[in-house]
Write a protein that binds this DNA or RNA. Structure first.
Lengths: 199, 199
DNA sequence: AAGCGTCTTGGACAACTGACTCAGTCAGGG
DNA sequence: CCCTGACTGAGTCAGTTGTCCAAGACGCTT
């Protein structure tokens, strides 16, 4: 094992943990597997992190940060809110279909965090971050299309997140892309009816 | 321990397993805890079930069956599709808020089944059952309100399930009932616009 | 009442995996 | 050349699972 700064080794272990969790699920993400995946010894894991809990917290942080960055789709000026909504969701959908393991992992992490005493805040943070991203996206659309939304932003953001979560979850189970995309498109259509002329 | 027919004892163990899983999560649902919860000995578990896997399969079957039965809300004749949709979702929401543990468990079970080799079919079955229940409900509404739906039923059913899943999942994380209900109501409103006069 | 299946149990076993510890080794910068 | 930080082998200890057993308890039939 090459000698590496502890900070770098930590990052390697976090990356390895994410790979294992994506592939095998969080339940199967043990310190041993993480160590093997990273090509390090088990003891190294405990040298770099005080506990598995701490490692997992870093993993969660990394994934949530990565996700919220990936969701920062640029909004190209478009004809109307409906088109912008469709484009945004389609772009998101491409990412989802490309990395099903990562999506599955985010849900698993949510439930894991909800169950783990002292980690509930991570689940909440995950969703707050997501809602914020949805809100930003919707405000970007309003600005680009010159419209206003006919519902309060917190409710709107939750509705959008709801739609995304629901469609992704359903698709993860049966992988029925045509129906999932059809549902997504129709929901986007419905959503677009909430766009109104600015006050 | 009172003497009980093996068949009844099996049911008791399944019920106990569900209680433990609701309370502590599936990951923490061990054979020993199940036995304790049921007030039976560990040996009884293995007397009644060939393996933990078999017990879990029965648990899944029981929960999915129970859920689909709970979803069979009766549709009272109402003025319009919008009202019927709202009533149905509100009724569902009452159940959700009353038994958050059960909801959390269903999601965990989905992901558990998706990860467990040879149990993916349970996850698919779970969602097929749910979609069927959604479709039945929507058709009931159409009949009761004398309307038709402007989208194919498979897509519609998935959209409804999407909305339910998404709202419940979001609520499980932050328990923000007002916003969740607001989102649910608005989504029901949107959904209602898909009701059209019959052909 | 005796007999005989059907349940029930405590206790044990081996095999495994989990997180975590620690004394000690090694490499490279000063 | 030595010291600090990186690394590790070899453990500890606890938990879970599947399996088995010998023994006992219960209730139904004859």
């Amino acid at each position: 094992m090459a000698r590496v700064a502890a900070q770098d080794r930590r990052q390697q272990l976090i990356d390895a943990a994410i790979r294992v969790a994506e592939r095998d699920g969080i339940a199967a993400t043990t310190t041993r597997r993480i160590a093997t995946e990273a090509g390090a010894s088990l003891a190294t894991v405990h040298y770099c992190f005080r506990s598995k809990q701490q490692l997992f917290e870093e993993v969660l942080r990394a994934i949530i940060t990565e996700l919220s960055e990936a969701a920062q789709g640029d909004i190209r000026p478009g004809p109307d809110a409906r088109t912008l909504l469709h484009d945004g969701l389609r772009a998101l959908w491409e990412i989802v279909e490309k990395e099903p393991g990562k999506q599955q992992l985010t849900y698993e992490l949510t439930h894991y965090a909800l169950r783990q005493p002292g980690m509930e805040s991570f689940a909440r943070w995950q969703y707050e971050t997501s809602y914020a991203a949805c809100a930003a996206h919707l405000e970007g659309i309003a600005a680009a299309a010159g419209i206003a939304w006919s519902l309060p932003m917190p409710v709107l953001a939750r509705m959008l997140m709801t739609v995304i979560d629901g469609v992704v979850l359903g698709w993860l189970v049966d992988r029925d892309s045509p129906t999932a995309v059809a549902a997504l498109d129709s929901l986007a259509d419905l959503f677009a009816t909430l766009a109104v002329p600015p006050a």
